[in-house]
Design a protein around this nucleic acid. Structure first.
Length: 394
DNA sequence: TCTGGGGTCCTAGGACCC
DNA sequence: TCTGGGGTCCTAGGACCC
């Protein structure tokens, strides 16, 4: 018996979030992103997309395409807060949720749909409920595997609802361009096209023939890909709480620089942000990494590991600065970053039982949620979500 | 006026240990 | 003299995703 997996993805999430708190923005070309000389678009509203504006585009290009586009800075804390209510809402339908990013998740709906007569209507109600209650639009994909559900949610936007059954794979999935395959990006897809593989169907055919070139090209990934195109990939929705493996911050300079004092003070600020992030998450790290991006856009990183874990600003800064001094002095760079890796929980019992309990989303006072500075973290509520779900399953 | 910032995962070589 | 085989950890680099 195959499972019913839902993938749900918020449409133009950051832009919609800005429209929510300032309704005068609704329908106008709007981008969320850095406005500076070197800024890029994080999210474009649908009105802005009509001008050809899209994510990752340099902001100045967006302005060229649409001179009166409205630019809002990224307010990640606010989006996280909305994200928390989004997941809380979804959780009223099924508690088996795998959070994939701030605006998307997989949900095992097998149990929830057991006695549902009209699944399509059920999902439409879910979708409209989200819009009514929280004000967020979403696209939904429903399929027997996570891979297919994700591909399905991508097919219709905004407010799409797409079902993909196993029998639909040749008609719905095979015609898609190869770069739409999750995990095949701008490096791998040209190489595949070189081999005459332009669509997912082409890939499936080549896999059927066990093309050895593909095996060596994909390495460990090969088997995963094979299962995906056969509709046999994972349907396990993993409710394990989010647990960061690294905590880092980086920043691009307005102008490339090799000025020691400018870079040193930036490293100091970044170290401080990393330290507060680590403390907030109750983490310490045994490796500090310093990353630098050179003027030709190549990144270089150096790291150092040590026995006793740290999370104090001064400790991180000392290590990071030493890495910089030993490796990059004098080099013109456009970005510098500091990351704490090899994280451990110093006392792994402590955490986060306090604020978060969404047993009853319906009872949750939404305005309270908004004002209560709950925005601190997406991560903490997810811990609770996960642990409760785990209990349930036992 | 070229190209942000937060991450995860994989590979591959060398050190080191048994 | 012409050289094992595992396993793990550290480090650098790169692809990819949202």
């Amino acid at each position: 018996m195959s499972k019913i997996i839902m993938h749900i993805d918020l449409n133009a999430f950051f832009a919609t979030a800005e429209e929510l708190r300032d309704p005068s923005l609704v329908g106008k070309p709007l981008i969320v992103g850095q406005s500076g000389r070197r800024g890029v678009v994080s999210t474009a509203s649908y009105a802005a997309r009509k001008y050809g504006i899209h994510s990752a585009m340099p902001t100045y290009q967006a302005v060229q395409l649409c001179p009166n586009v409205i630019i809002k800075p990224v307010d990640f804390d606010y989006y996280e807060m909305l994200s928390v209510s989004f997941f809380a809402y979804i959780r009223t339908f099924s508690r088996i949720i795998e959070v994939a990013s701030i605006d998307e998740c997989f949900v095992d709906m097998s149990e929830a749909l057991k006695d549902v007569q009209d699944p399509r209507q059920y999902f439409l109600d879910l979708q409209n409920g989200l819009l009514k209650q929280i004000g967020l639009k979403c696209s939904i994909g429903v399929a027997p595997t996570k891979f297919l559900a994700k591909m399905a949610s991508d097919m219709k936007k905004p407010m799409g609802l797409t079902f993909v059954h196993k029998r639909d794979i040749p008609s719905l999935i095979y015609p898609l361009p190869i770069e739409s395959f999750y995990g095949i990006g701008k490096r791998t897809s040209p190489a595949l096209k070189e081999m005459g593989i332009n669509t997912i169907g082409d890939l499936a055919l080549r896999i059927k023939k066990s093309d050895p070139a593909l095996v060596s090209m994909f390495g460990k990934f090969y088997n995963e890909v094979k299962l995906c195109v056969e509709g046999q990939s994972s349907d396990f929705v993993d409710p394990t709480p989010f647990d960061p493996k690294s905590i880092g911050h980086s920043e691009t300079f307005i102008n490339d620089t090799n000025d020691f004092e400018e870079i040193r003070s930036r490293i100091e600020e970044l170290s401080s942000e990393v330290a507060s992030g680590a403390k907030r998450d109750g983490k310490m790290g045994k490796t500090v990494q310093l990353v630098v991006k050179d003027t030709s856009f190549h990144t270089h990183d150096k790291s150092v590991s040590f026995r006793d874990p740290i999370n104090e600003k001064g400790d991180i800064y000392t290590k990071a600065l030493a890495l910089y001094e030993a490796n990059f002095m004098g080099m013109m760079i456009r970005l510098v970053g500091v990351t704490l890796q090899n994280l451990i929980d110093p006392n792994n019992s402590d955490i986060q039982m306090s604020l978060w309990n969404y047993e009853n989303y319906e009872e949750m006072d939404k305005t309270k949620l908004l004002v209560n500075n709950l925005n601190r973290k997406l991560k903490k509520p997810m811990l609770i979500l996960g642990s409760e779900v785990k209990k349930k399953q036992k």
